[in-house]
Write a protein that binds this DNA or RNA. Structure first.
Lengths: 238, 238
DNA sequence: TCAAAAGTGTTCGCTATACACCCATGG
DNA sequence: CCATGGGTGTATAGCGAACACTTTTGA
């Protein structure tokens, strides 16, 4: 190896023996509106792709890891400090950015939409339902497809869906969430029975009336119970 | 964004407005020796970590994608041109390389050990069984754990195990492979019945004698049949 | 009193598991 | 003829899919 970082004189420039790509972290932020899965997009204010929508992102700082960079981006955009994030792919095609060689380490985040405040960034940000996402800047269309594929994969192994719901939720809401993520339909009664008899949901003595009809019990996710079951080889399947 | 690549005078140096990390691709190459899963390691000839073992890897060229870089590394090391590879993680901790900021996009490869020839590289390379891998250079211990986790995850979704076997194999060999990867034991007869009645294996009119006792039928993986079943929602589970 | 949504229980069929049994071969 | 490994069939338990039924509430 070679090419230690080195400042050379003229105007704060960083010089190396071999060319290096720029590195950014982008963040596909997923939320759930009660019925549909949504992603947070920002409208680009500058060229290239000015006026087009893209996932929030920015350059990796030299003293931070990619994960720290993604968390920083997430916080700037949503105000959230401790959401679930997961690295899912590094995009490295030489032609993916018209300005030159830019490599992007992409994360997806799962957030509770209700907790998201407008970010620090002045940039216009908006939640888009999955089937309403316009054609995106750079290779972000591919990025979205890849993120979604990885989210669906991951949700077979870990109960990360709860990251998208409030702490208290009804089983119906949980069903709608899983249906939205996996794009399937479940039998309402089978889903209810299955989840109710699993021991990973703590029944609360509270109810809500989401519909104008009968009120529904609230539950919370029992993470410690889940971890305990997981230790014994249990796996939550859908 | 900013910092287009730019050559400035003095001795072929590449200068940018902001610092950039070096980027490498490393390749965790898995093989199967008939009983155990193995990884191909190379002994480092230079500092840092001189004399320690590490996964093969090298700098990303400016005109290639990370995947192309990983395939190039794989070919230099094994002579193989078209093995299965999959990107599984980008390692980006600022302190992971003592020489400076180095970011690594890591792939794992599944190869048929029999087809591997000594690589172009003069570097000493050797296959290590998983439980005999020594303490590795850089953060490659973590890299191995992560690769193995991703391999186990992926094998639940795709029948990639066949990449590690010869084109013709016995069901016993397939069982040993899955037992080695997932670190579980299956009932010999149930495994045989399950795979035999699935339609993804083509029975050949050939036998081999792996043990000194009875000879066993050979099978080949029927990928097109698998793809067809997959289309209908079928999933190979273990 | 009817429609809609929440909650409960039952039936049926498939499949994973356990395991008995037979076949082929070398010593 | 016995030990070892390959190949085949069967019984059982458990679970998921389908679905009947009850309860609660607003209109």
């Amino acid at each position: 190896m070679n090419g230690m970082e080195e400042k050379s004189g003229e105007g704060k420039r960083y010089c190396y023996d071999y060319p290096r790509p720029s590195v950014t972290t982008d963040c596909v932020i997923f939320g759930f509106d009660g019925t549909r899965l949504r992603v947070l997009l920002v409208e680009r204010g500058i060229e290239p792709f000015k006026g087009r929508w893209a996932f929030p992102g920015g350059f990796l700082q030299m003293e931070e890891s990619a994960e720290e960079g993604a968390l920083r981006e997430l916080q700037e955009e949503t105000g959230l400090r401790d959401a679930y994030i997961r690295q899912f792919h590094a995009f490295s095609d030489p032609g993916r950015d018209p300005r030159g060689r830019v490599l992007t380490i992409a994360y997806y985040a799962l957030v509770k939409m209700q907790e998201v405040k407008g970010g620090d960034d002045a940039a216009k940000a908006e939640w888009f339902a999955l089937d309403e996402v316009p054609s995106l800047a750079f290779d972000h269309d591919l990025m979205l497809r890849t993120a979604l594929k990885e989210l669906r994969r991951q949700i077979h192994f870990e109960p990360i869906g709860f990251e998208l719901l409030n702490d208290k939720f009804t089983i119906k809401e949980l069903q709608l969430l899983y249906e939205a993520i996996l794009d399937v339909r479940f039998d309402r009664r089978n889903f209810y029975n299955k989840l109710r008899h699993l021991e990973i949901l703590t029944p609360l003595d509270e109810t809500v009336r989401n519909s104008p009809k009968r009120e529904a019990f609230l539950f919370s996710f029992n993470k410690s119970k889940y971890d305990e079951l997981k230790q014994k080889g249990f796996r939550l399947e859908f």
